[in-house]
């Protein structure tokens, strides 16, 4: 898609063979975009979309059922709420910025296309996470293949060095001003990668969703949720080695 944008962006023509013509008045759109700009109905079409208190997983299930009935508002809301979770899922696989953006978009498009074949609505959150992870792996594999092909060219320009992309998508921690934040992040980065991914995701989710997240990541069940879990226990242990910081204030 990016290449199309670029090509379009640089194309120009003096041709104006499609002359002006009378324009009919704009009518109400037959298409309802999922964004907030869409007419947010003042009265709920169903009367049951009060989902406060439910977990993200519950809201995802609700959005799917609504969508199947032809109501798209809940899905638009879900995309707003859950895209950060998908973003961090994809980035945790080592996907570069622009590709990660595409992967998140495609994950939502895929959900819409599979909306009528997902048998268990409460599996939607896990389905999203698994789909995003797989697409992320695919993107990483493709990037590495491309990089290898480029690396074989003898005339790599200095502007495009042949080095493989870093597997670590995270920028440095200059944005962290506070010593306590830097210390936490440094400790966090000492955890095994899967622990980092797990904690990064559950930190964005509601506790009832931990099960869906851990199962999507393939971490042993029971490792998070009702218990502290090994990853968090390990992080706490590392933090203690770093010194005495107060976390609850």
């Amino acid at each position: 898609m990016g290449s199309i944008f670029r090509r379009l962006g640089t194309s120009r023509t003096a041709l104006d063979s499609v002359g002006p013509n009378p324009v009919r008045p704009v009518t109400a759109g037959a298409v309802h975009p999922l964004g907030d700009a869409m007419t947010r109905p003042t009265d709920s079409p169903t009367g049951v979309n009060d989902q406060t208190g439910a977990s993200l997983g519950d809201r995802a299930a609700f959005a799917l059922l609504e969508f199947r009935e032809g109501r798209q508002q809940a899905l638009g809301d879900l995309i707003r709420e859950a895209s950060p979770l998908l973003w961090h899922t994809v980035r945790a696989q080592g996907v570069a910025h622009q590709e990660a953006d595409d992967v998140v978009q495609h994950t939502w498009a895929a959900l819409v296309k599979h909306a009528h074949t997902i048998t268990e609505p409460h599996a939607v959150l896990k389905w999203l996470l698994v789909t995003a992870r797989r697409a992320a792996w695919e993107a990483v594999r493709k990037t590495r293949d491309d990089a290898k092909r480029r690396a074989e060219l003898p005339d790599d320009s200095p502007d495009h060095p042949a080095s493989l992309p870093s597997s670590d998508p995270l920028p440095d921690t200059q944005v962290l001003q506070e010593e306590r934040d830097q210390m936490l992040w440094n400790s966090f980065r000492q955890l095994p990668e899967r622990c980092q991914e797990l904690l990064r995701l559950v930190s964005l989710a509601d506790r009832p969703d931990y099960r869906a997240i851990s199962s999507a990541i393939g971490m042993p069940m029971g490792s998070i949720g009702s218990t502290r879990g090994r990853c968090l226990a390990k992080l706490r242990t590392i933090l203690d080695e770093q010194g005495d910081f107060s976390w609850t204030t």
């Binding site: 298409v31 309802h32 975009p33 999922l34 964004g35 798209q72 899905l75 638009g76 995309i79 707003r80 895209s83 950060p84 973003w87 961090h88 980035r91 910025h97 953006d101 998140v104 978009q105 495609h106 994950t107 939502w108 498009a109 959900l111 819409v112 998508p169 995270l170 920028p171 921690t173 944005v175 962290l176 934040d181 936490l184 992040w185 966090f188 904690l199 990064r200 559950v202 930190s203 964005l204 968090l232 992080l235 706490r236 933090l239 976390w247 609850t248």
Partner: peptide
Amino acid sequence: AVLAAVARIANLVDPVPAGLVERAQFAAT
């Protein structure tokens, strides 16, 4: 509290791109 701090820092270090939500909604539409 530590988990909350992880969420906050992760969003500082690797923020969700501006407009991603709108692009995703458009893709779904």
